[in-house]
Amino acid sequence: MKRTTAHRLTSFGVLVVLAALWQLASILMPYESVPGEPMIPGWQILVTRTFLSLADYWQGGLGVPSVAQGGPRTYAGAALAVLSNSWDTSLRLFTGLTLGVAVGLVAGLAVSWSKWSRRIVALPAQIIRTFPMLALIPMFQLWFGATFLGMALFVAFAVGVIFFTGTVNAVGNVSDIHVDYARTQGASRIQIYRSVILPAMFPELRSSILLSLGTAWTAVIAAEFLGAQTGLGQIIVFAQYFGYVGRMFLVALFLLFYAAITYALFERASRRLTEWMPRELATPDRYGAP
């Protein structure tokens, strides 16, 4: 316990140091990307002027008029803009993630049912795993336009592929002895899937889940970068056109914060599901999502 507390303190300390370095850089390098917009805006600017400028992305409503309709930039408007765009992004993310996980898992389990079908998909799955998914976004836009459906489907597709291959792999690696043990006790095929395969594959599947989370974030950001009407990713790209580094930075921080929260939530949930495991197995890999 002591070690993790110390670890957390160092992590926190490093974050503070990084924030201070940013501040230092903003003082040492007072360049401007466009007149009036510092290349590296200090924190005193970020939390005031920059945050206030996010009110531009509020469409109006709830008694707070939008800036485009002549309303003033207010903190309420800025907060509402952040909230509504965060909501749009998360909705795309979680719809796609849920759909991708469900389809990938079911398809993976179905394929694993027989050893023949597992061998048939092994090679295509290996190839698809190295497929540059992000390059497919323009196709999704051709097919579905810059719609909610298109973005959610893109997320679902990227996640589904990872989850499918992860599931097939994980089922293949379930120890024979546990399957045999269940068989000698009279377990049916379905019972073996439910009580042996699913729990036994979960530790290995966890790295797929974490990879899927990372992929889902990347996919939703990528989709929003390329022509969405709303969403945090869209704000970043829009701000980049005009050289508003401050807005980009602030919104990117929001995104990173949300991504970190989803990871933390998953860690917490998975700790309960893997209570049975020896501790050294219980820390998965979460790396590799672009």
Binding site: T10, S11, V14, L15, L18, S33, M39, L134, G214, W217, T218, I221, A222, F225, I236, V237, A239, Q240, G243, V245, M248, F249, A252, L255, L256, A259, A260, Y263, R286, Y287, A289, P290
Partner: peptide, 26 residues
């Protein structure tokens, strides 16, 4: 390690793609 791990581990989990527009500006 105490200094590098928090940076690297954070960088390893964030969707790196977010940084792309910054590199375009810089």
């Amino acid at each position: 390690r105490a200094f590098a791990d928090p940076i690297m581990l954070t960088a390893g989990t964030i969707p790196i793609l977010v940084t792309a527009p910054f590199f375009l500006i810089w």
